[in-house]
């Protein structure tokens, strides 16, 4: 029963992933990714990670993908360019490399030996509900947690600064030449 659920979800995820890379239209790609992410969320539930599953739905499939769709539509960038590929050799090389990589990872995956019985280990996770996860987050991971909060602020400021339009005809940053024309006295004083 478990295996059937897993295979179904895995197939969904893989189909979604292929959709991401095969659709010419970027909007379809993004929607396919949403499908993959949702099925991944379900896989998380089977992996005793309920909290992460809900966060995956809310943050990833919700917020982040909406942001993607918004930008795609804002830039009207959903249509692919029909120019000639200047690097024709890349696509076959990538496909060959990808197949080898997938095979290699899958092969190594089955070398993995479980350190303890699965049922016992799964019990220790307590279902991955917000309570136990939060406890780890606010004790062992307090410093990374605070660091990430800082990172978010930096990201917000950075995003605003990147997208801000500079006033027409006015250069904000001075060039090196301009800097060099300052007299030493000005620099000292």
């Amino acid at each position: 029963m478990n295996m059937v659920v897993f295979v179904l979800l895995a197939l969904l995820a893989i189909v979604g992933a292929f959709g991401v890379i095969l659709w010419k239209n970027a909007i379809y790609s993004a929607l396919s990714l949403v499908g993959t992410l949702l099925s991944l969320a379900c896989i998380f539930v089977t992996l005793e990670a309920q909290f992460l599953a809900s966060v995956q739905v809310i943050v990833y499939a919700g917020a982040i993908m909406v942001l993607f769709l918004f930008v795609i539509m804002l830039l009207n960038a959903q249509y692919p360019s029909d120019e000639v590929d200047p690097l024709e050799w890349v696509a076959p090389a990538a496909i060959a490399g990808g197949i080898v990589l997938a095979g290699a990872i899958a092969y190594t995956a089955f070398l993995f030996k479980a350190p303890k019985p699965l049922e016992e280990a799964a019990k220790a996770l307590q279902g991955g509900t917000p309570g136990p996860v939060g406890e780890t987050l606010f004790t062992k991971f307090l410093l990374p947690f605070e660091a990430v909060s800082l990172l978010l602020i930096v990201a917000v400021v950075g995003a605003v600064a990147l997208v801000k339009r500079e006033p027409e005809g006015k250069q904000v940053r001075e060039t090196l030449e301009e800097r060099a024309t300052h007299t030493p006295e000005e620099v000292v004083a």
């Binding site: 690097l87 090389a93 990538a94 080898v100 990589l101 190594t108 070398l111």
Partner: peptide
Amino acid sequence: SGFARGYGVSVLIGTVALIAFLIVRGF
């Protein structure tokens, strides 16, 4: 070359080579 995808292929080849090496050598 200046093409980001060209660099990406390099990374992929490197990754595959690394994993192949690990498999051959054993973990």
